[in-house]
Design a binder for these strands. Structure first.
Lengths: 217, 217
DNA sequence: TAAAGAAGTAACTAGTTAGTGCGTTAATTG
DNA sequence: CAATTAACGCACTAACTAGTTACTTCTTTA
């Protein structure tokens, strides 16, 4: 009676979809790596959360580190792509710079996993990111965009000259990143709820002020 | 000749020394936790590096997390203590602020373990630091010091009023911390050796400029 | 439609890891 | 000097963990 094809009432039909499974694994992995770091993440937990078999992880990503690398690369590509969609070149220099500062802040706020992934990667001395050429290319675009905003600002007599676009880029990231990645220790050290709605509002205003004063003549 | 016991010439110094063993464990643990994070650190490796038996770690610190907590607390106490030794109250507002920016940068540069420990603690939502009252007290002193510098600067007509000392404190830390903790990914993203001597020199100048422009009238 | 191949699974392995039980040895004290 | 206390070490374990083997089930296509 083994050849019986009639489906049992409680049995779900097994749907096969490689892309969907891959995506579920990547999504679960992103959360797990962000929550526990590369070392603390558990492959079994990722498989369970993704509703996939652990074997599939090794089938699609070769190893735990291979999975981490893909997660990290995707995360960088996502923020770089979102930055390009801002079309800062269509705005006047001041508005463009403010929009970038605001965007960076809001992206970190809405995607806290990005911060933890980057921290984790730095703990491992960027060994995974080193292998990625596409990340370099897409980052170059961002630096060029900031350089262009600065140039236009100088020409318009709004910004002082001599500001290094790389340093500016780093600083725009820094004032948001540090506040948010260290929000837990920060809340204790400064005895203030750094994640309260008005605290966040105050911080983004402070960051805009910081960057604007930095470039203004 | 006061403390001189009846020590025989050829005799080795004390083989048993609880304080020395504790100190060796803490030192080894700091390095191991900084290098691999709390999750990635190995208790066996710490014991080996400390030239102590693993049993001693559990004897003195109860658990891996107990050891981490002590390491973290010591790290915070060290930077807070160093900050107090700057005697910023003896300097004029501008010099005091610049000295603090420079000190913060140099402390991070010389003590990169501090950055990784703080990152690790934030990955764990500050569960260890939460338990420490002494950290809050010593941090309060720093915030008060910055508040006092700001006040003196405003009175002297050098600084604008309305700058939140907590936000300023956070920003002073941010511009150094982000650059250094993300030096590995940063070197790839910005295609520039961020740790080259002239790059470091350029960054500290940029940071001073950023903070000074932020508070100046 | 049959065969190939891709998607998916359960159970396993070999190595690792935090934490301990219990005995030994050095220093202190009555 | 004996008794006590504290420092120290060996060897173990129970649980965990990345990665694999060997298999079944579904989908595509010649």
């Amino acid at each position: 009676m083994t050849g019986e094809q009639t489906e049992k009432p409680g049995r779900k039909p097994r749907i096969r979809d490689a892309e969907a499974t891959k995506a579920r694994i990547l999504d679960a992995a992103k959360k797990e790596f962000a929550k526990n770091g590369l070392g603390g993440a558990r492959v079994d937990d990722i498989a369970e959360k993704a509703k996939a078999n652990k074997r599939m992880i090794y089938h699609y990503f070769e190893s735990k580190e291979g999975l981490f690398q893909t997660v990290l690369e995707d995360a960088y590509l996502d923020i770089r792509s979102a930055e390009q969609k801002l079309h800062l070149e269509d705005l006047d220099p001041k508005a463009a710079l403010e929009k970038l500062v605001r965007f960076t802040w809001e992206y970190y706020l809405k995607n806290p996993e990005f911060l933890t992934l980057v921290n984790s990667e730095n703990l491992h001395r960027a060994k995974h990111l080193k292998k990625s050429e596409i990340i370099k290319v897409s980052s170059r675009k961002l630096v060029n965009m900031v350089a262009s905003i600065l140039e236009r600002g100088v020409k318009a007599g709004l910004f002082r000259s001599g500001v290094d676009p790389v340093q500016l880029n780093i600083t725009i990231a820094a004032v948001g990143y540090y506040y948010l990645t260290n929000r837990f220790t920060g809340t204790i050290i400064y005895e203030r709820d750094l994640m309260a709605k008005d605290a966040l509002e105050q911080r983004i205003q402070f960051n805009i002020e910081t960057i604007m004063r930095l470039v203004t003549v």
